[in-house]
Amino acid sequence: MAGYGWLAYQLHAAVSHSHGPTLCLIKNVTGVPCPSCGITRAIMAIIHGDVNGSLYSNPLGLLVATGLVVGPIWLLVDVLWRKETLWKSYQQVEVWLRNPVRAIPLAVVVLINWFWNIYKGL
């Protein structure tokens, strides 16, 4: 719910042509963007139909936007059908990621994204 609230605030700020504050503690303290910096801008770009702008802001934004759409629908279906498929899938992914052969390449992708954020000066 906090994520949807933040997006609503950002949409309102975009309409009023003001830029909202950054909530990134790492960037506020060090001046260096974190790996997730730019995800709000990426999602805002997707909402406005700018996929290239979204990818430039933060490629992980597409993944987060997909989760923001699919997650609540999946949860609603689970509640209506009295199932726990979302929770069981989450647990399976968590176990799957415990394998270093899978976790290390994903960590490398996050590091590459972080360097990309630093390079473009977010």
Score class of each variant (00 low, 15 high):
Val77Phe: 08
Leu76Ala: 10
His12Gly: 10
Gly53Tyr: 01
Leu75Ser: 07
Val77Gln: 03
Pro100Ala: 09
Leu106Ile: 10
Leu86Tyr: 12
Leu106Ser: 05
Gly121Trp: 12
Ser18Tyr: 09
Val108His: 03
Glu84Cys: 08
Gln91Ile: 06
Tyr119Trp: 15
Asn28Thr: 12
Leu97Pro: 01
Gly53Leu: 03
Glu84Gly: 11
Tyr9Phe: 15
Leu11Trp: 10
Gly53Trp: 02
Val79Cys: 04
Pro21Cys: 06
Lys27Ala: 06
Leu122Tyr: 08
Gly3Ser: 12
Ala42Leu: 05
Leu97Phe: 02
Met1Trp: 13
Ile112Thr: 11
Cys24Leu: 07
Met1Arg: 14
Gly71Ser: 13
Gly121Thr: 14
His19Ser: 14
Trp116Val: 12
Phe115Lys: 09
Leu80Asp: 00
Arg102His: 11
Val15Met: 07
Asp50Phe: 07
Arg82Asn: 10
Met44Phe: 01
Val69Phe: 10
Leu106Arg: 08
Trp96Gly: 03
Leu11Lys: 11
Ile118Ala: 07
His48Ala: 08
Trp116Gln: 12
Thr22Ala: 05
Ala14His: 13
Pro33Leu: 05
Ser54Thr: 06
Gly67Leu: 15
Leu63Glu: 00
Val79Pro: 00
Lys88Glu: 06
Leu7Pro: 13
Asn113Arg: 06
Val109Asp: 00
Pro21Ala: 12
Tyr9Lys: 15
Arg98Ser: 00
Val51Thr: 11
Thr22Val: 13
Leu111Gly: 01
Glu84Phe: 08
Gly67Val: 11
Glu84Asp: 12
Asn99Pro: 00
Trp6Thr: 14
Thr40Pro: 04
Arg82Met: 08
Trp116Pro: 10
Leu86Ile: 05
Val77Asp: 00
Leu25Phe: 13
Phe115Arg: 09
Tyr90Met: 12
Val109Trp: 04
Lys120Phe: 03
Gln10Lys: 15
Lys27Asp: 01
Trp96Ser: 05
Pro21Tyr: 07
Gly67Ala: 15
Val29Ala: 10
Trp96Val: 07
Gln91Trp: 01
Tyr4Gly: 14
Lys27Gly: 01
Gln92Met: 06
Ala107Gln: 09
Leu68Asp: 05
Val51Ala: 11
Val32Ala: 03
Val69Gly: 05
Gly71Asn: 10
Lys120Asn: 01
Thr85Ser: 11
Ala42Asp: 02
Tyr90Glu: 03
Phe115Pro: 03
Gly31Asp: 04
Gly71Ala: 14
Asn99Gly: 00
Leu80His: 02
Trp96Asn: 04
Ser18Met: 11
Ile47Lys: 07
Ala14Pro: 02
Pro21Asn: 09
Leu55Pro: 04
Gly38Asp: 06
Leu11Asp: 02
Ile118Asn: 01
Ile47Cys: 10
Ala2Gln: 11
Pro105Ala: 10
His12Glu: 10
Ile47Gly: 05
Leu106His: 04
Leu62Gly: 14
Met44Tyr: 00
Ala45Gln: 07
Arg102Ala: 00
Ser18Phe: 09
Arg98Tyr: 00
Ser89Glu: 01
Gly5Phe: 14
Ile47Glu: 06
Ser89Tyr: 02
